[in-house]
């Protein structure tokens, strides 16, 4: 169990370091890096690398945005198997629904209960 936490730690940490390097050393903006990570996740899922990686590192790969992409790829694949070609359209967002809905709902609630504070140095 502790090994799993440790694996999640270093694999997840490395995903973040790679993103930091892309932001600091290239002209890529953070938004572009995030897009790259999601698409990378879909790609890893498509070529069958995501699942073994997930079995090894757990949250180390599912918590970074790569996991969002990985979940979309798996969702699409499974939906195609159960529902046929319509799964192409239904699978992705179904798999991403928890993250998206949680962000939307908590975002809305936060907007009701809090307000932006001025930036400080």
């Amino acid at each position: 169990m502790l090994v799993d936490v440790l694996n999640a730690f270093w694999v997840g940490g490395l995903f973040c370091v790679l993103a930091q390097l892309l932001i600091d050393l290239t002209k890529l903006t953070p938004a572009r890096v995030l897009v790259f990570y999601v698409v990378l996740g879909v790609f890893l899922g498509a070529v069958g690398v995501y699942e073994p990686l997930y079995d090894f590192a757990g949250c180390g790969v599912s918590v970074p945005l790569v996991g969002f992409g990985g979940a979309i790829a798996r969702g699409v694949r499974e939906a195609i198997h159960t529902d046929g070609a319509i799964g192409i359209l239904s699978g992705g967002l179904t798999a991403a629904s928890v993250g998206t809905t949680a962000a939307l709902v908590f975002g809305y609630l936060a907007a009701i209960f809090f307000k932006s504070k001025p930036k400080r140095m």
């Binding site: 953070p30 932006s116 001025p118």
Partner: peptide, 17 residues
């Protein structure tokens, strides 16, 4: 600062460097 950040850059509570 806060009006300019909102208009020209990112939301005030956005976490960036």
């Amino acid at each position: 600062n806060s009006a300019a950040e909102r208009q020209f850059r990112l939301p005030l509570e956005y976490g960036g460097q």
